[in-house]
């Protein structure tokens, strides 16, 4: 067992867990944050996407010991019921979420994309989200949600 201490959604947490515990399981089972989903367990679907030190990662492929001292953001750290994050608001309005199981990962991937490309082209969106599989939408509503978020951010400047 190892004591793993890191910053989770703005608060410091310490967990005693086997060091090879997947970050996904650390979040879901040890810390009871179930917004991060498991779709494939092999880094292919992106449902378990979280941000580690601002970078998008598949939490099913991260051994927990490697997040020692890191900053982790999950979907729970993004918005509040009373105040959705703009990405969440745009996903809601544009129909970017259908069954919702890929949505937390997709929203974090969008967050990462917009950090790197505040005004992404369609090709940048297509590439930036290509590690997050969605079986419901055919991605078109998601593209619109991302574009809308970027537009709002631009207008809000």
């Amino acid at each position: 067992m190892s004591i793993i201490t890191f910053t989770l959604n703005g608060s410091q947490v310490s967990v005693d867990a086997p060091p090879m515990t997947r970050l996904l399981d650390l979040l879901r089972e040890h810390l009871h944050l179930t917004g991060t989903k498991e779709g494939c367990g092999e880094g292919e679907c992106g449902s378990c996407s979280v941000l580690v030190d601002g970078e998008l990662v598949n939490s099913c492929l991260v051994p927990s010991l490697q997040i020692q001292g890191a900053t982790v953001t999950t979907i729970e750290g993004l918005g509040e019921q009373t105040h959705l994050h703009p990405i969440q608001q745009c996903f809601l309005e544009k129909g970017g979420a259908q069954c919702g199981i890929c949505t937390p990962g997709m929203i974090l991937a969008t967050h990462h994309l917009l950090e790197k490309h505040p005004a992404p082209t369609l090709d940048e969106i297509r590439e930036g989200l290509s590690g997050n599989l969605c079986r419901c939408t055919g991605y078109m509503r998601i593209f619109e949600a991302v574009q809308q978020t970027a537009k709002l951010a631009e207008a809000g400047k």
Binding site: T34, G35, T36, T74, I75, E76, L78, G79, E80, Q81, L84, Q88, Q89, F91, L92, G96, A97, G100, T103, P104, I107
Partner: peptide
């Protein structure tokens, strides 16, 4: 939808 985009 709100519960879904919030991960709740």
């Amino acid at each position: 939808g709100e519960a879904k985009v919030l991960g709740r």
